[in-house]
Simulated scan of single mutants.
Amino acid sequence: MSHLQLIRPEPATGATPARRRKISLDKVAVDFTTRGKTFRAVDDVTIEVPEMQFLALVGPSGCGKSTVLNMVAGLLAPSEGSVTYDGAPVEAANTRVGYMTQKDTLLPWRSVADNIGIAFELRCRKANAAERRERVAEMIDLVGLKGFERHFPAELSGGMRKRAALARMLIYEPETLLLDEPFAALDAQLRILMQQELLRLVERRQMTVILVTHDLEEAVLMADRVMVFTSGPGRIRTERDIPFERPRNAMELRFRPEFSAIHEELWSELKDEFAASVERERRAQ
Rank of each mutant, 00 (worst) to 15 (best):
P89H: 02
P17G: 12
L25I: 00
A92W: 07
V28P: 06
Q102H: 08
Y85I: 03
G81H: 00
T34V: 09
K37H: 12
L76T: 03
F120K: 10
P50L: 07
T84F: 01
K22W: 04
G74A: 01
V112S: 14
V90N: 08
L25Q: 10
V28I: 03
I47N: 12
V30P: 08
A73C: 12
L122D: 11
D31R: 11
K22N: 12
R35M: 14
V72S: 11
R110Q: 05
R35Y: 08
E121M: 09
A73I: 01
P89V: 01
D31F: 02
G36A: 04
P50C: 02
E48S: 12
D104Y: 12
P17D: 07
V49N: 14
L25Y: 10
N70F: 03
T101C: 07
A77P: 09
G74R: 11
N70M: 07
T105S: 13
A29D: 15
P108S: 03
M100W: 06
T33K: 13
Y99S: 03
S61G: 10
R40P: 00
K65I: 00
S66R: 13
N94G: 11
N94W: 04
T95H: 14
V83W: 09
A113F: 05
P78L: 00
M52L: 00
M71R: 11
N115I: 02
E91A: 08
E91C: 06
P60A: 05
L55I: 15
G59M: 02
F120E: 12
P108V: 00
K103W: 03
Y85C: 03
A88G: 02
A119P: 10
G62P: 12
S79R: 07
M100A: 05
P78E: 06
L107I: 00
R19Q: 15
F120W: 13
A93V: 05
K103L: 00
G64V: 02
V83R: 09
A119T: 08
L75H: 10
R21K: 14
S24K: 10
